[in-house]
Design a protein around this nucleic acid. Structure first.
Lengths: 345, 345
DNA sequence: AGGACTACGGAGAGCGCTCTCCGGCGTGCT
DNA sequence: AGCACGCCGGAGAGCGCTCTCCGTAGTCCT
């Protein structure tokens, strides 16, 4: 018993296929990659040989010569405090991942999942990509002051962002017309006849939050409502509940609330219920995202839909384009939000 | 301007480092990989050269000779109906991914995320792994009749399962002592003095569901309660709500409910509230998992905690062990659940 | 002091694949 | 009928790295 022989059972190589098919390596390679015309009879021989010995191309060998990893990194950057799990638990990332995978899979690619919630973690992401472990990065940042986009550009790694960068750097991105979304929410609340409208915002550092708020306030201002009270949350359910309590303490007559995401909207609804203000009868609540959280709890949320899966798929498409042609100009695609009216407002 | 020159700006190679440092490639390789003793003075020279020209090792070249991809696949198998997003939206997978990443990252590894919710998708997973894109698979199956574990073994891909396989196949896994968890829930409800106890189960095909139920019923039987009504759900919030309604219709006097996961428990609570039975005052509800859903909604759930992150980390550890030493026997690690008492029961 | 052993750097052979270059043959045009 | 061109298969040179093997130098034991 040769122990070496046991473990060294190697998978068949292209050369073996060539031997079996009675052709050269080059021809086998051409058949596999579909480049140039190969005589149909020869091609069939090659295919038979491949099937006969169960050949699968070796990715490392191919990568070595093509200088492509045929892999993308999906980087969740600027993640929070509660360890790796906390951020991934957010259904938002599930939607992004789902959209990315849905697009990539038909191309035989799969994303490498990376978290970059600390500075050393970000170093590692850059290092990983520089090594050629992936051909590019899909970046989902939770903080707008994230250094990663700039660092990736500097390292020459093709990248596409989900949401525009805070600083003007030459990088492609997809984004939502957040202001329009805020406007949609405002018009809806106005249409419902709300008189005392308040908002629950996200952290100031989050650009999307600012934009939604801006669009909301702007629309209200255009209807002669210059002042909108605002309490700051941090996108968690609990923070929404706390924010709502603060708002109620200051303005007991609130009859309309715009929360900048669904989770905070749910929290707000609970705070309202606790204080004896049924939703939507006394207070209308509008969320943002149309995440799964919007329909998981009653009343189902009226919310501004963000087509996250489509945006994620587009992001992947843009990155693939860019990898195929690195010279191409950076681009951006902005998606339009949509109001989804349900029970809460 | 030579266009070729533009795009062909290649990253420095080990050979260039060797030239700069005035040593051989082998020595540079030894310094980088820390094998054998290298004269400290030479090692320093090499390190300086690496820093000077910004060298990073090429992963493909290394993989080619070491026959290792230094990557693992995290496969979510048997996923459901609602497209890629639906399953990833489940916070459970976020916890698994978080646990895996938390363990893998310190080793410089990152999981490749794959979905295998259809037969062609499973084919692709096998193919992907056979190509050597990853050294092994971390498999999270939602259905016990999943063919993937067996196929991966057959393909010689080192694999570790989250939850034991339905059929006895030689594969390593981590799992929870689900029966003990069911027992914990039963004893808690008994302790609370519940008289009419019902259960909301998951799909029959899910082994974990059967086990939790078995443990629950067994504990009840030991206390002279041979019969426990059961309505079947499918682990979604809505199915829990529907199941609860069916249970109430058949047994209006229910005062204790054990739902086999938190989401269904939340749904049950809503159904109970809608029917004018406050939780926990009239009916005690116990969930399972201690997912983020358990505390996102009021009342916060009394539930059986499953240490998913720890289990996922252990799974990664086991897989790495197995890859390092393929001859090693398959093993299993069973985690103990823990009762977390909150407001709902 | 001589021999054997250890320590450590260098040379060189690939790992499995792609791709350029070359050559032979068949076809169409003059 | 001769020549040029296009089509397609084969040969061979690497891609960047690791690792075995070898040689030299230093060390310890008898």
């Amino acid at each position: 018993m040769d122990v070496e022989g046991q473990t060294e059972r190697r998978s068949p190589t292209l050369e073996q296929v060539a031997d079996v098919a009675g052709v050269s390596r080059a021809t086998v390679s051409r058949v596999i990659n579909g480049v140039r015309n190969v005589d149909p009879a020869l091609a069939a021989q090659v295919q038979d040989a491949i099937a006969a010995i169960g050949y699968v191309p070796n990715r490392a060998a191919r990568s070595l010569v093509t200088r492509r990893a045929d892999a993308l990194a999906l980087v969740i950057s600027g993640a929070g405090d509660g360890g790796p799990g906390s951020i991934l638990g957010d259904p938002f990332f599930g939607r992004v991942a789902g959209g990315v995978i849905g697009f990539l899979r038909p191309q035989g690619m799969h994303p490498v999942l990376m978290l970059a919630e600390s500075e050393p973690a970000r170093d590692e992401v850059v290092e990983y990509l520089r090594r050629g472990n992936a051909d590019g990065a899909l970046l989902v940042s939770t903080h707008s002051d994230d250094s990663l986009p700039a660092r990736l550009i500097e390292a020459g790694v093709p990248s596409v962002l989900f949401a525009r960068p805070a600083d003007p750097i030459p990088i492609s991105y997809v984004d939502l017309a957040h202001r329009d979304g805020g406007g949609l929410a405002a018009e809806h609340l106005l249409r419902r006849g709300c008189r005392m409208i308040a908002t629950i915002s996200g952290p100031r550092a989050v650009n999307a939050s600012q934009e939604r708020l801006y669009g909301f306030r702007d629309a209200l201002a255009r209807h002669g409502r210059p002042y909108v009270p605002c309490a700051e949350g941090n996108f968690t359910r609990d923070s929404g509940e706390q924010a709502m309590k603060r708002l109620l303490a200051a303005h007991p007559d609130i009859d309309g609330v715009f929360a900048l995401n669904d989770l905070m909207a749910q929290g707000a609804i609970h705070a309202l219920r606790d204080s004896g203000r049924p939703v939507p009868d006394q207070v209308a609540v509008v969320g943002f995202d149309d995440s799964s959280a919007a329909v998981e709890e009653l009343p189902e949320l009226t919310t501004v839909r963000q087509p996250v899966e489509d945006m994620a798929a587009e992001m992947a498409r843009m990155l693939l384009d860019r990898i195929a042609d690195p010279g191409r100009e950076v681009t951006s695609v902005i998606f339009e939000p949509e109001l989804v009216v349900r029970e809460s407002g």
